[in-house]
Each structure stands twice: as structure tokens, then as C-alpha cells.
């Protein structure tokens, strides 16, 4: 997994490329979420345009990020979710938890 962080208005966009599937990915993602919370940046969009698929371990990584942010009065939303990842979200009913967007501007606007 490669992770790049950028900001748009009061929102942090995390561009992920590669695979989100466990091991070191979990530590890296947890660390960046904690760092952002420490910096007072709690409106997060995870851009998955560079992630073709993930496994349930990867989904668990996103869930941990989501619950951590929600506990700290923030949120984690998903952008550009592939068909495969969408299938996992639907079958696990996590589509009811994660707000998903296809358009970055709309995702950023949802935090205004």
C-alpha cells in the first residue's frame, strides 16, 4: 500500500494505491489516522481509486479508522470505490456505515 495525504478545504484526502490487505498496512493506516486526529484534522476522505481490491482484513483496517475518527467526533468517507470493493461493502452491509462518493468535489462538499 502507498499512502499520500493532501488537503482540500477542511478535509484531508488520503490517496491509497496498491493493496489494502493487512500486515504493515494496518499499522501505517492507524498511525496516520492518529496523527491527523492529533493535528485536529478529523474530516477524512479515503480515495480508493488506486485500489482494485481488498480483503476483509483491509476492510477491518478501514473500520478501525472509521471508529477511531467517530470516537473523536470526526468521520471517514470513501471515494472511488471499485466494483470488487463495492461487492464486499454490500454483502457485509458496511455500505450502510461508510458514505461513498464517485466525485471528489461532492465528497469534500459533504463536510461543509
Amino acid at each position: 500500500m502507498k499512502l499520500r495525504s493532501r488537503e482540500s478545504e477542511k478535509t484531508v484526502i488520503l490517496d491509497i494505491t496498491g493493496k489494502l490487505m493487512g500486515g504493515a498496512d494496518a499499522d501505517e493506516f492507524r498511525d496516520i489516522v492518529h496523527k491527523l486526529i492529533e493535528d485536529g484534522k478529523k474530516n477524512i476522505i479515503v480515495n480508493l481509486s488506486g485500489v482494485r481490491w481488498m480483503n476483509s482484513t483491509g476492510m477491518g483496517i478501514l473500520i478501525t479508522g472509521y471508529t477511531t475518527l467517530r470516537r473523536n467526533k470526526g468521520d471517514l468517507k470513501l471515494l472511488n470505490v471499485s466494483n470488487k470493493i463495492q461487492s464486499i461493502l454490500y454483502v457485509t452491509k458496511l455500505n450502510l456505515i461508510f458514505e461513498c462518493f464517485d466525485d471528489e468535489e461532492k465528497a469534500v462538499a459533504s463536510y461543509r
Binding site: S56, T57, M59, I63, T64, V91, K93, L94, L96
Partner: peptide, 19 residues
Amino acid sequence: DPSDIHHQRGRGIYIMKAM
């Protein structure tokens, strides 16, 4: 329950059974 966000793990078998 796979939609229970208090569980980080345990969705793999549910996903396989469903798919």
C-alpha cells in the same frame, strides 16, 4: 454480524458463504 463495526475481524467466512 459483518456490519457490526465493533468487530475489526471475522468477516471473511461470512463473505465467502454469501458469495
